[in-house]
Every structure is written in C-alpha cells, then in structure tokens.
Write a protein that binds this DNA or RNA. Structure first.
Length: 877
RNA sequence: GCCGAAGUGGCGGAAUUGGCAGACGCGCUGGCUUCAGGUGCCAGUGGCCUAUUACGGUCGUGGGGGUUCGAGUCCCCCCUUCGGCACCA
C-alpha cells in the first residue's frame, strides 16, 4: 500500500474526493499554480470568504423563514457597531469582533441558531465637519467609509449575516428611529425646555452633560460653555428607579454596573419646607433630616430664583456681584476652586421649625454660595456644620455657629463635625436615638406637621436630546403658527433629510436644517402652515435600538415583527468598549424599557450579558528630545530600540492614535500573515477583558502554530487512531469547550497548541476522524484554515454547522496520577500511583518516597487529599 | 477624596472549590537542517546556592502582618497602576 496521502481517507466522510484531483496527494481544491506544500493563507482565505458569501453560509433564518428550525435554541451575539470613520479599522476593532465571532461559530457547532449581525452607527460629527470643510456631502463620505469598513471586516472572515447589515443613516432605518421618538412623545417622555445647556462653539452645537468633560467636548476637546437654550429633552429620570433596580439581574461587569448606579445617583432623605422670615419660603432636600436640630444656616444656589426676592437692601450689591461671578465661572473653574468656599449673606433668615420663636437657633441666616448646585435637589440646602464637612468648612470660614447633634459611639468628647453613625444629642425628642432610627422619626414629625416628607432624589438629569446638526435624524415634529407642536403622522415617516450644499448653521444662527426652506415649510390640507423642527437627534438615538432592527432589518411595515422579536431577544452576549459604560448602555436600556411598556418588546432589559473588551495598545517611540518617532522608522534589536540614524529611542505603550503614529492596520497583518493569524493573535493576547500592547514580535508565534497544523495534516492520516492521541484529543475538546463557555480564548488556544505539540512530538498522524474533529475545534478561531482542512478530508459542505465533537468522560480519566508529597508544606517527592489508589495506599507510598525527610522526626499529622488533584502532606516536628 | 478593576519570569500571560506557581506563546541560549534565511526542527530557559553522569537546597506571585497542615488564591493594613466620579446636600 502506498503511503497515505493526507486526504486519501476522505471517502470515510463524504464519498469521493472533490473533483480536480490531478495530484493524488492533494485532491479537490488546489488552485492552479499554487504550491500546496506551503500554507498559502492568501489563496485559502480568499476562496473561503467567497464561498461563504456565495452560499450564504452564515445567514440566520428568522421564524417563518426557510431553513428555520424551531427546535434549535437561539443565541444572539452582538458587537457594538462601529462608527465608520475615515481612518478605517485598526487592530483594536477586531479584538472584540474576533471574540464574538469565535463565540458565534462555537455556538453554531453546538446546535444553536446564531444571530450575529453587523452594521454602522454612521450619523455623527466627523462626516459633517468634513462636509463643512470640503463640501462633500456627509452621505457620500459615509458611504465610502462604510465600503472600506465592510471590506476590511470581510477580509477577516467574520461570520456575520451580511444580509442584515444596516446603517443608522438609511431613511429605511431612521424612519423607525423617528417612530420610536413618536412613542416617547406620545407617552409624555419628550418635552421642550429652556434649560442651561452646554454649548460648544467649535462644533456649533449643544452637547449633553455626559458629552462634556471638564468643560470640554468629549469629541475633539473643544471648550464649552453653559447657555440657556430651548431644547428637546427626554424624561429618562422617570425611569431612574427601574434603570437602577434592574441592574441587579444583569450579567454585566461590576464596574459598569457601579458606574451606572453612580450616574443615576439615588439618595434617600426628606424635603423640608422652610419659611423665610417675613413671607416666602423654599424647600430643601436633605439626606439627614435627623440633623435638623443642628441646622444653623441655609444656602441657596446663586441661580436660585428666590435669591433676588430675599436679598436685603444692604446686601444687594454684594449678592449681585457674587452671582455674576458665579455665572462667569465655568463648571471647570468651580471644580478647581472647590477647596476654597465662597459665599455671601443675603440678609434674610429662614426659620428652623424644630425651634420656637425666641430660641437662639430659630433664625437661620440665608447665604448664597456656589457650592450649592441649582441642578441638584431644589438648589437650596439646610446647613448642619456639626454633621456635614462642607457646611462645617463654610461655617468656619464665615463664623457661623456649630451645634453637634451626633455623638459617635464610644467618644469621650463631641467632635466639632461628625458625619458617621452614633447617638443623637442636642436634638430634643430625638435625643438618645441612633442616627438610623432618628431619620424616619424626624421625617414622620415633619410629615405630621405638613412641612416635610420622605423624598428620593436622583443625580440623573433628563436627557438633552437635540443637536444643531445636519447629519442626524430629523425630529418627526411640526411647529404650528400658534406655537403648537404636532407629531408628523406615522404614515408620513420617514422625515428624510433635505439635500443641502452648505452644512454650516444658518445666518440666523439656526441649525443647518433651517437652510432647507422648502423642507422646513409644510402646508397641511387645511392650508395651515407649519415649520419643521430643525434640530436633529444626537448620535445616540440610532444606537439605542439597532439591536432590535437587526432582528428584522428588511421589514418596511414595522420596525420589527413581534414573533421574531420574541424568538431572538434578549441579546445573549454584547461585547464592546468600556467607554460606553454609561452613555450608550443607559440610553439603550431606557428606550428598551419604554418599548417594553408600550408592549413592543418582550424583555425588560436588552442585554443579558455584557463584556467590555480591553484596549489594544501599541508601542510608540520617543527620541532623546521627547519627539515622537514614526514606528516604521524604528528598528528593534533585542531590548534596544534605535531610529534608523542610530539614535536610541524610548519605547512607550499607549493607545493607538494618529498623533503617536503607532496605529496598526489589520490589512497589513492580513497581507503578511493572513486573517487566521490575526484572529488567533487577537484571541491569544490574553483575556478579552484585558488591555495589552500589540506586539508584532508575537505574530510569528501563532502563525507558526497554523503552519504546524497545516504540516500535520499534510503529513497524511493514520489508518487507525492512536490511543494516546485519542485521549489527548478528548482532553483538548473538553478544555476548549469549557474555556469557550467562559470566553477563555487564550487558554483554549493553548490547549490546542498542546495537542498539536503532542502529536508532532510523537511523530504521530491523526486518523481521518480525529483530523476532522480537530478541524471543528479549530474552526471558530481559524475558520479559513479549518474549512480548507475539512475540505481536504473530503467534506463537501462548509464546516460551519458541523457538530461539536463529543467528549468521552472515560477518556478524560488518567490511569495513573502524579501525587506530590510534602513535608511541612514543602515539596519533597512525586509519586506515580494508580488513579484509583485509596488514601491508605497514597500515605504508604508517600511515606516511602519521603522517607529521608521523615527520619528521626515525629509525624504529627498526615493530610491526604485524594481525587483529581491529589497530594500528601506530612506535618512533622 | 470616593467607587471599580488590576499588580505573577526579560515580555504577553496560565493556575476549578486554598492543594506541584510560571501552562501556552514570544524572546533568549545551545545544537541540527538549509546555497541562503524574518524558514523548519531538537534541547534548555524564575533568582540564588550547591552538584556536575542524573541529584539536591533555598528564596520567589507589589510590600507588611494574619488564618491554615498548606495561601498567587482567604482576612487586615499599606504602596503602585489603570478606569470612572468628584462640593450631589
């Protein structure tokens, strides 16, 4: 019998080898002119990508579609869809995409119907700014960028169902974004409001609080100022409690949950109505109603509407000056100056309801100070210097009295300011109570008198939902001649973006859409003239519900079909960057809950499990003067890095950015090593959740692994399965499966490497059946190569839906176990014992093995641990 | 300051419920193959001490304490890095 060709046993699988087998050695798929002794990843990858596309291998059928199997469980695995920037992909993007793709492919092997879509979050500033500069229509820029992103992603062999591709900028998509806005509007969750908002001159738009960091725009870092403007707001605060409570049941990283909790910022307390001497009054929120006996003054925020009214004649000038100064300060300056408390007395007094007229603490001076924010609570507070650090600081600076009201446990003396637990003192009917009891006691006391009540306050603000941009979803709203506002009728959706050639704000200062005069003016059947809303929605709008549109992207009579929604939702695994921990994820949860309340979705949360992929960092180089050196000008020799001219440069690890000139383009990696190698490296770098630097030096390592696999198959198949190899394969299958369930891609790969190393070292060959099973294991990671190997083995159809190999538990159990023997916890010997050795045998054998260390000492105790991780420890004196 | 995550070889990183620290990969060292090699293969590779035909000892998971027969893993204190929040009453 001639030596077995690698795929000569193909008949065992699929009958005759595929056609075109002019070489007995490599039947089936050999492209002309290619030397198949070499792992020709370029040819292999192109071929399979074509075939997947042609055969729609990854099409996910919906309920009712051909090929849909109601018996199969579903798995919805989603990437945070990207903004298609002009810069194209860098190797950071595929880190998350590789993770989800591995999971998607693995779940298919496990018999799941997998929904794994990709689309584009394509509205947004850069395309519009580019349009302003060059006159290129944002739609053209966007189309071009999407083209590039798609082809780059396709080159990586991701198993997306491309038939479900969507872009938030398509009218067929944003029609439904507008439709959802209608739902919000109808439920009273959208309203217009004159609010102080962040205005960014450079971007000529308002920004949401969350989009402004330290007084600068999140995108671009341009300075922003607060300005009162009429804007559309969404009443997300109505959902604060549920957004907070429902975090509980989500399988999300603790850090993200914590950030959302903090952002929502629930605090329990009471609001108290204070009378002002001589008339008016105000309400203050406090978390410490129990300390009311210690309230010695009050503070109003400089923006508080009552300030003018209460300020006495003598204080008018000082208060006016202070308010003006506060208004001029940006939030940033206020924060910077926070160490130093400032304020000014109004001349007015509030009355403390727990004291009678005539009591020295009855009259509380009212101050104005910028440490009280108008945007939180009621913009007015009662101040208890004995129970609050900030009030204490303020009282000290301005000589206001302090009354301690809480005695810390086991304290000899009353501290001037104590914020912790303890017993009430100087507090009338509360004296002797613990802080925790006295809170409800005081609240009840206030409620009885009708001057206060329990109250929960949130830090969360309503969502500023309008932008003064062209490249966003138009609001489906009309303004009537008398100021009335109407929704555009649903049947008239979408309200499409008008064509413009100038994307700057209109001369009147209105948003760019106001330039489209014909578009803005709408005459109804009765001849009434309406004006369209010229604000547009923020970029978050489209990303709030794209995961729902993926379910049924072609539907033009509904946003999605309810039956399809019930089948696929919720998203089982959602992978994306931690930068969306609050904004996108909170907004999307909010919309989803509204849709749930409308009866339009079947789950009250959209994303069951969330994973933040770590960042891919990159090396950057600085020369002696600290100037950045382009990466391609640096030669790395061992540990020293030199510029081409020989100067030593310093290596730093940083985010990839144009500025640092350290962006790695996946196209280059694919050209040099292939997509499978790129995928493998992304998966092998470490846990998905961890950030790690892109180290080009490590690429050949994973590439070598694929080469070894290729050569292993090329070497031919064995007639019969080797027993040891079979055991190792079962261990490998079990390990890879377990690891993938936990997203342990790097360790799964390590297990496969170990398997291949073992087979190579034994100079063994795989049986056809083993070879096929290993190809399935490899497929989620290196799908092109795995398909090629399977085809070579004679498989006619794609490997994508091949069942995951079964594990025989009996083969996972070793015949012998190695037992470490310790004396006083120190390793002294190792034993080989039969796997079924009992404790007695283990101890006996261990005594013998460690005899030298047990001589002349007294054995106090013997610890014998049987089982899969056995050990024996002698405790001696 | 508060909240969250993390700190393990030269590097990326492994290590079910506490049970052989350093899997796997890179790099490095030595050897082989090759006309050549940014190739392939084999062997070695935590530090120190000792041995030198195999062995052995000792230290070692940011630092210091503790619990335990046994700690990278659990508890307390501290340090560092990253991310978030920051006068939120």
């Amino acid at each position: 019998m001639p030596p077995l060709s690698p795929w000569s046993a193909a008949e065992d699988f699929r009958g005759a080898p595929a056609a075109g087998a002019e070489s007995a050695k490599i039947p089936g798929f050999r492209p002309p002119g290619t030397d198949m002794s070499r792992y020709d990843f370029t040819a292999i990858e192109a071929r399979w990508q074509q075939r997947w596309q042609a055969e729609k291998t990854f099409r996910a059928p919906n309920p009712g579609d051909e090929g849909f199997d109601p018996a199969k469980p579903k798995f919805y695995v989603l990437d945070m869809f990207p903004y298609p920037s002009g810069a194209g992909l860098h190797v950071g993007h595929p880190k998350g995409y590789t993770a989800t793709d591995i999971v998607a492919r693995y779940k298919r092997h496990r018999g799941f119907q997998v929904l794994h879509p990709m689309g584009w979050d394509a509205f947004g500033l850069p395309a519009e700014q580019y349009a302003v500069q060059t006159g290129t229509h944002p739609a053209a820029t966007t189309a071009k960028n999407i083209e590039m992103f798609r082809s780059q992603l396709q080159a990586l062999g991701f198993s997306y169902d491309w038939e479900r591709e969507l872009s938030t900028t398509d009218a067929g998509y944003y029609k439904w974004t507008q439709w959802i806005f209608q739902k919000l509007y109808e439920r009273g969750l959208a309203y217009e409001s004159e609010v102080p908002v962040w205005w960014c001159q450079a971007l000529s738009t308002v920004l949401a609080n969350e989009e402004v960091i330290d007084g600068k725009s999140e995108r671009g870092g341009h300075p922003c100022v607060k300005r009162p403007l009429r804007q559309w707001m969404l009443r997300i605060t109505d959902y604060a409690e549920r957004l907070l409570a429902d975090l509980e049941g989500l399988d999300w990283p603790d850090s993200v949950k914590a950030m959302q909790r903090e952002w929502i910022g629930r605090s329990e307390g009471a609001e108290i109505d204070f009378e002002i001497e001589g008339g008016a009054g105000f309400t203050a929120f406090t978390t410490r109603p129990d300390t009311l006996f210690g309230a010695t003054f009050c503070v109003l925020s400089p923006e508080h509407p009552l300030v003018d009214q209460v300020t006495g004649a003598g204080q008018r000038a000082a208060v006016a000056a202070y308010r003006e100064e506060a208004a001029r300060k940006t939030e940033l300056e206020r924060a910077e100056l926070q160490k130093d408390k400032t304020g000014v007395f109004t001349g007015a007094y509030a009355l403390n309801p727990v004291y009678q007229d005539g009591h020295p603490l009855r009259r509380m001076p009212i101050w104005v100070a910028d440490y009280v924010l108008m945007s939180y609570g009621s913009g007015a507070i009662m101040c208890v210097p004995g129970g609050d650090e900030r009030d204490h600081e303020f009282a000290l600076k301005f000589g206001l009295p302090t009354v301690p009201v809480v005695r810390p446990e086991e304290a000899e003396e009353l501290p001037a300011c104590w914020t912790g637990a303890g017993w009430m003192v100087n507090s009338g009917f509360l004296d002797g109570m613990a802080v925790e009891q006295s809170k409800p006691a005081m609240t009840a006391w206030l409620e009885e008198r009708g001057i206060g009540r329990a109250k929960v306050t949130y830090r969360l603000r309503d969502w500023l939902f309008s932008r003064q941009r062209y490249w966003g979803e138009p609001f489906p709203l009309l303004h009537g001649p008398d100021g009335e506002v109407e929704l555009v009728p649903t049947e008239d959706l979408p309200v499409s973006l008008p064509e413009l050639d100038d994307f700057t704000p209109s001369p009147s200062g209105d948003p760019p859409l106001a330039r489209a005069k014909d578009w803005v003016r709408v005459v109804d059947a009765d001849g009434k003239v309406w004006r369209r809303e010229t604000n547009s929605m923020p970029q978050w709008a489209g990303s709030c519900w794209y995961y729902l549109r993926f379910l049924d992207p072609g539907n033009d009579t509904a946003a999605w079909d309810p039956e399809i929604e019930r089948y696929w939702m919720p998203v089982d695994l959602y992978v994306g960057g931690a930068e969306h921990a609050v904004l996108h994820l909170l907004y999307a949860r909010f919309w989803h809950k509204v849709l749930f309340d409308c009866g339009l979705v079947s789950t009250d949360e959209p994303f069951r499990k969330l994973v933040n992929q770590g960042m891919v960092l990159s090396f950057a180089y600085r020369d002696q003067r600290g100037a950045l050196v382009p990466v391609q000008d640096v030669e790395v020799d061992g540990d020293s890095c030199r510029r081409k001219d020989g100067e030593l440069v310093e290596r730093i690890v940083a985010k990839m950015s144009k500025a640092l000139r350290n962006v790695v383009n996946p196209d280059d990696v694919v050209a040099e090593y292939g997509a499978d190698t790129l995928r493998l490296y992304e998966a092998f770098m470490g846990p998905v959740t961890a950030s790690a630097p892109w180290n080009p030096r490590d690429l050949p390592g994973v590439h070598r692994f694929l080469q070894r696999v290729w050569r292993l198959y090329l070497a031919g198949v064995a007639e019969a399965a080797d027993a040891e190899v079979e055991r190792a394969l079962h261990r490998c299958v079990a390990k890879v499966g377990d690891d993938l369930e936990q997203l342990g891609f790097n360790t799964a790969l390590a297990a496969m490497m170990e398997f291949v190393n073992l087979v190579t070292k034994k100079e063994a060959r795989l049986s056809p059946d083993q070879a096929m099973r290993f190809a399935v294991l490899l497929e989620p990671f290196a799908p092109h190569l795995a398909e090629e190997l399977a085809a070579g083995l004679g498989r006619a159809e794609s490997l994508a839906l091949a069942p995951w190999p079964a594990v025989d538990a009996a083969l996972l159990v070793e015949d012998t176990i190695e037992v470490p023997v310790q004396v006083n916890g120190k390793l002294r010997a190792r034993l080989q014992l039969a796997a079924d050795a009992d404790s007695g045998e283990m101890e006996r054998a261990a005594r013998e093995a460690a005899a030298a260390h047990l001589e002349g000492v007294e054995v106090r105790k013997v610890i014998v641990v049987p089982g899969p991780r056995p050990m024996v420890n002698f405790v001696v004196v």
